[in-house]
Design a protein around this nucleic acid. Structure first.
Lengths: 244, 244
DNA sequence: AAGTGGTCTAGACCACAAG
DNA sequence: TTGTGGTCTAGACCACTTG
């Protein structure tokens, strides 16, 4: 069991406020307590309160108006994606109003494709562990995701111990002790090939969203390469862009 | 001419550091001066320096390592999109390594489609101003963008004065005095219809990225609705996702 | 005029990595 | 041990909108 670093005060306040917003203790469109009220409630300095509020505002969860107050963003419920921040397919499905589930299709060691080898800075043909999963929304297949990890990173770990239900970030932290620092994603539109179409229950040639992601550690070393197909007739990517 | 608020110290430092990174005065992968060195250089408090650095780190431009230092992210050059932050098609094309240009296809007043009316909280058939533009990369059409603005917002402005070359954010600020606070984007994959295919020089039925965006002011009032088609064989959406 | 969020300061202590 | 970035405090003044 890894030791959980106790969170900072600002992070805890962030979490508490976030919960109050989701629980509608602070309903959409309503005004939050002022910063001075909050610092009294939590008995911290104003800077700490503002650290938490700044993060919520950057995500679009709240809108701050100078001279007026801080308001819960009415339209946060429309959003299912937090590109630029932590985010995974499970939550995407959940936030789209469906019940998520995962079906593991395969988990095996094989030779890297040229694309994977390039992304992971390996030679083509080097051994990688490949995990192929199908995400379902209310039981319907919606996302086909393949993740590839260089074998060196996993050491002598038994494949059977690799928990394929975990989001990729937690998986890397637990099994490689290498937390993800950032990822680079490439979003494209593509026509479904035969196998992908069949797994997602679409016709061959149907339009799908394709997301290719390479995850890096804080030393710029590539950790994982992922390629996913999203059936966006059932699931669209909705995200908030905050201005200024 | 609207009065331009002079920027805050933190914003100015943000801009200076950003320039130094783009100019490779701080090259990719190199270590920045420490926070104490920076606060001496600019003669400000540490909190002010950290405000600037925090913003750069959130965008992925720099990586901060406790006990070590702050480094320029080597892979920032791969990225062409800043979803979740300020961003426009002109910069997308530029950052993809092409020379951008805009061709205005039409600018006129017409009745709102049901989709536009819904997004803009109007009745279907109400008057809107519609601007249709074709973005080119090195002269090749890559993005077809249609923006729709409720006529009420523009008042008695002459259509001819509306500068279609402006990014939508600056356009709203200048002609409506209503700055954009946030936007909600919907990213999907779609098959090109006849007219879209022709304008983008693709075959009918080809896969395109479609982005639908509604822009809101800080009072949650819808300002603009935009629908765009991106030819992602020439231009892919590459963005950075920062972790933690 | 009063209250809000926006900005900035000067200082302190802690956690972490290696100059 | 030294120097980094991470966190927090108490206080000040400013800009803005009108609870």
């Amino acid at each position: 069991m890894p030791i959980t670093r106790s969170k900072s005060i600002a992070e805890q306040i962030d979490g508490i406020l976030r919960h109050r917003i989701y629980d509608e203790e602070y309903p959409p469109g309503s005004r939050l307590p002022s910063e001075s009220e909050l610092l009294e409630e939590f008995d911290v300095s104003r800077a700490t309160i503002r650290t938490a509020l700044t993060k919520l505002a950057a995500e679009g969860l709240i809108l701050r108006k100078q001279g007026d107050g801080t308001y819960v963003n009415e339209r946060m419920g429309d959003v299912n994606t937090q590109l630029g921040g932590s985010w995974d397919y499970w939550r995407l499905i959940e936030r789209s109003g469906f019940l998520p589930s995962i079906q593991q299709l395969s988990k095996r060691t094989r030779a890297a494709t040229p694309m994977e080898a390039g992304a992971l800075h390996m030679a083509a043909g080097d051994d990688v562990v490949s995990i192929k999963r199908l995400f379902k929304a209310d039981g319907h297949p919606v996302i086909l995701a393949t993740n590839t990890i260089g074998c060196i990173l996993l050491g002598d770990l038994d494949l059977a111990d690799l928990d394929a239900e975990l989001p990729i970030g937690q998986l890397m932290e637990r099994f490689c002790q290498r937390p993800i620092a950032y990822a680079i994603m490439d979003i494209q539109s593509t026509a479904a090939g035969g196998d992908v179409a069949q797994l997602l229950g679409r016709k061959r040639g149907a339009s799908l969203l394709q997301i290719r992601t390479t995850f890096y550690d804080r030393d710029n070393g590539p950790l994982v390469y992922g390629s996913s197909y999203i059936d966006d007739t059932r699931l669209s990517l909705r995200l908030m862009q905050t201005w200024g």
